[in-house]
Simulated scan of single mutants.
Amino acid sequence: MSKPSSQPFCASSIIGTGSYMPEKVMTNEDISKFVDTSDEWITTRTGIKERRIAAADEATSDLASEAARRAMAAAGVTAEEIQLIIVATVTPDMFFPSTACFVQKKIGASNAVCFDVSAACSGFLYALQVARHFINTGNRTTALVIGAEKLSSLVNWKDRNTCVLFGDGAGAVVIRRAEEGTDASGRVLSTVMGSDGNLADLLKVPGGASFCPITPENVATRPNTIHMEGRETFKHAVTRMLEASQQALEIAGLTAADVALVIPHQANARIIGAIAERLGLPPERVFMNLDKYGNTSAATIPVALDEANKAGRLNKGDVVLLVAFGGGFTWASSVVRW
């Protein structure tokens, strides 16, 4: 993996966070009633105890819109002030229009430019960096960045190796241009992104699009559900997340010792533990909520960021490290000065 070049300073700050989780809770015991597994098996291997499942009439844009409203309320901005909406998702309402356009309609953000980003579990950090570039060029001053997923729509509920992992939810942030020389909190200092398409087969939904349309002949094999090679995914996730974290800190002129809190992608407790250990950080400086929600893909980091914020885990001046990996293979990390 090549070392990224130094980035120009992008004066943008997170000024509000919000999240929304569906009401329905599905516990490990619930899953054990229809697939050969147990609470002990799932908890030991993943750290997950339960996850949220969206209602049949709840679309990804519904989850995203509610998270967006809460982030906007926290930021004290109106829908008319939002000039850009980016939704990171692999479970869009439709192939097109974009989920972001549906969010625009639902929240009344008539002045926004809207589009989606697809980078699986790294999607929110990809979208955050895209929004930073818009702000850095001066074309937009206020943006809404959302990670939202209805992964229950992609889960094969007969596959015990994958159905236990995923849940539904959405998180959002409002970011705004911060003038140079100001003491704006929530400032995004750096972002590192990477991809390796050679690893695409490790984590994918192979069917349902142009490569493998759903037909009467293949529908029984459920090609439009999540397929994962767990061992290889684990290995590459740890390596790439560690590299991205170290690079983002270096670009920001910081080290792991400066980090007050790591908010990692919530995929697996063992992966999170391995990252923390290799960065030399104790458990109390790592935020985890996957026991409650499981893996919500692009939503995990913004949901965790909002929960950490609301719980008082983030103090002014704290260095916060955000890091993720996902199918593609993709990975990303951001450093924020809270």
Rank of each mutant, 00 (worst) to 15 (best):
D57H: 14
S152L: 03
Q104I: 08
G167C: 04
T215R: 13
T330C: 10
N156P: 02
N224Q: 02
G181H: 04
A71T: 09
T300R: 08
A252I: 13
L261I: 10
S210T: 10
T296P: 02
V103D: 02
A71R: 00
R70E: 01
G207F: 11
I275W: 05
I31F: 06
K310D: 03
S190C: 01
A88D: 02
I251W: 04
T239H: 11
A59Y: 05
A109Y: 00
S110Y: 04
E250R: 13
Q7Y: 13
L154D: 00
L249Q: 04
D196M: 04
R285D: 03
S5E: 11
D291S: 15
G326P: 01
M241G: 05
L249A: 10
T89W: 08
D62V: 10
T78Q: 12
A220W: 00
P213T: 13
T221Q: 14
K3T: 07
K235S: 12
T215M: 14
A11H: 12
V286D: 01
I48H: 05
C10S: 14
L144F: 00
N198F: 12
L322W: 09
A178N: 05
W331N: 09
S19V: 09
S61R: 10
F166D: 03
E58M: 12
V319S: 01
F96N: 14
A276I: 10
T89A: 00
G47M: 06
L254N: 04
D39I: 02
L321D: 03
S185R: 15
G207W: 11
N156T: 08
L125C: 05
R187N: 10
